[in-house]
Design a protein around this nucleic acid. Structure first.
Length: 255
DNA sequence: ATGGCGGCTCGCAGCCGA
């Protein structure tokens, strides 16, 4: 079973890239973030024609998440149950007995912003949600754009990056709190190239210079860790014309 | 690195992303 996540930064603009990519890589499950579409505008027909079932929850201009699946999507849940959030950032579904949760963690903007406080509160709510989900689903995968680079080697230059969003101590503690639940960063189960990133700023030729950050992650419960065969970032779509600023991350399970 | 890009909108300027 191939599980993938991709922040597409507008599904309307990136739909051709998405259709090419699923044809080339044939993921069984693909989690999308930043669809930036109201549900009435979701390109359901094109995705169904590509052979996928899809569940989505979006809004105008910002945020929006979706799960595409080759197999039947069951028990779809939107948002973090019991935690009111006007922003559409979470969707969950069960596929072949695997509980898949797609997350788009808030960016936070800057450490002195209200958006940063929202990010930290949001991460606390997510942590409680995932703790509960782990008691219900031994096979749990949490994929998405976490907007956190967990370690210094997950950014191109930790000194230059300083103590901003993506790397601040409180955000990294929140990420460690997810791992403390028993979730594992599947990327780090395997040898990886140095300076492996999933996001590069559009500005300053950041991709060409590999000035990026690893902020998109596939976390697995212990049961799935034992079945995990590989995890890789596919940088190819970032080289296309009008790319998303994020690359897809793909984790393969022996299922 | 934060002007510089690229998405969005009660659009042509400003907000947001990361």
């Amino acid at each position: 079973m191939k599980l993938a996540t991709w922040n597409v930064n507008s599904l309307k603009v990136r739909l051709p890239h998405l259709l090419d990519w699923v044809t080339a890589h044939q993921p069984d499950v693909l989690c999308l973030q930043e669809t930036k579409l109201e549900d009435v505008n979701f390109p359901q027909d094109a995705i169904v024609s590509a052979g996928y079932q899809v569940a989505y929850c979006g809004q105008k201009a910002y945020n929006g998440v979706a799960i595409l699946s080759r197999g039947v999507l069951e028990d779809v849940v939107m948002g973090i149950p019991g935690w009111e959030d006007p922003q559409q950032r979470v969707i969950a579904a069960t596929v072949s007995g695997v509980r898949v949760i797609c997350v788009y963690v808030p960016n936070g903007q800057s450490l002195d912003s209200d958006k940063y406080l929202y990010k930290l509160a949001w991460l606390r709510a997510l942590t409680h949600y995932l703790a509960d989900e782990l008691t219900r689903y031994p096979k749990l995968a949490v994929l998405g754009d976490y907007n956190i680079a967990p370690q210094d080697d997950d950014v191109y230059d930790a000194v230059a990056w300083g103590d901003g969003v993506l790397v601040s101590a409180a955000e990294r503690e929140a990420f460690q709190g997810l791992l403390a639940l028993g979730l594992v960063d599947s990327f780090r189960l395997f040898d990886q190239e140095n300076a492996s990133f999933t996001w590069w700023d559009y500005r300053m030729a950041a991709f060409r210079r590999n000035m990026g950050a690893r902020i998109d992650h596939v976390l697995l419960s212990q049961t799935l860790v034992g079945l995990c065969r590989c995890c890789e970032v596919d940088k190819a779509p970032r080289r296309l014309e009008r790319p998303s600023d994020h690359a897809p991350v793909m984790t393969t399970l022996d299922l």
